[in-house]
């Protein structure tokens, strides 16, 4: 499924904006306008936008009759929610104890080098990649583990992950 926003042609970009906003309304109507529906709404909306844009949070607050500050509070409390736009590929590098001792750090460095990220920056300017560390993916037997979107890659090394990313880029180019 195509999810490109910024780089897409105008026609497609507009349908995207509209489709997403219609989806937000569908989600709110389906889950109900009660306070207790807030978290499920945020989860589904985030799936749609890949993050929680400020204006959409304000819209949700309006629809649910909550103060924007409370919605913002919930959205910032849980690590699962992001208020920053994330890349098309979210790469999670596990840095739990097992992964850490089996060398997750060099893997992380290799990824950052490959996608051109430095310092505290987590998402590339072209919104292609977001690189994060997580505390445990629950796959310690495969340490060190990396997750790209929904797919898990075990027993990673800096060389292996670079090959995987090269492959990903090739597939992506073919798609476009």
């Amino acid at each position: 499924m195509k999810q490109e926003v910024n780089g897409a042609p105008k026609e497609e970009r507009n349908t995207n904006y509209q489709r997403k906003f219609e989806k937000v309304n569908e989600i709110i109507n389906r889950l109900g306008r009660s306070q207790s529906a807030l978290i499920p709404i945020l989860q589904e909306v985030q799936e749609e936008y890949r993050y929680l844009p400020e204006e959409i949070l304000t819209y949700i607050a309006t629809a649910l009759g909550l103060s924007p500050a409370s919605v913002f509070g919930v959205a910032t409390f849980y690590a699962q929610f992001s208020l920053e736009a994330k890349g098309k590929y979210v790469i999670k590098v596990c840095d739990g104890t097992a992964c850490h001792v089996r060398g997750s750090e060099p893997v992380l460095e290799a990824i950052k080098k490959r996608v051109n990220l430095s310092g505290k920056k987590k998402t590339t300017d072209d919104l292609r990649y977001t690189v994060e560390t997580v505390s445990c993916l629950g796959a310690c037997g495969l340490a060190p583990v990396v997750m790209i979107n929904d797919k898990i890659y075990g027993q990673m090394t800096p060389e292996a992950i670079t090959i995987i990313l090269d492959q990903l880029e090739k597939e992506d180019a073919a798609d476009e």
Binding site: Y17, P53, E54, E55, P68
Partner: peptide
């Protein structure tokens, strides 16, 4: 009630 961004739905160039 709050100042801020708008929700973009269609953009023209």
């Amino acid at each position: 009630r709050i100042s801020g961004e708008e929700i973009k739905l269609m953009t023209s160039q």
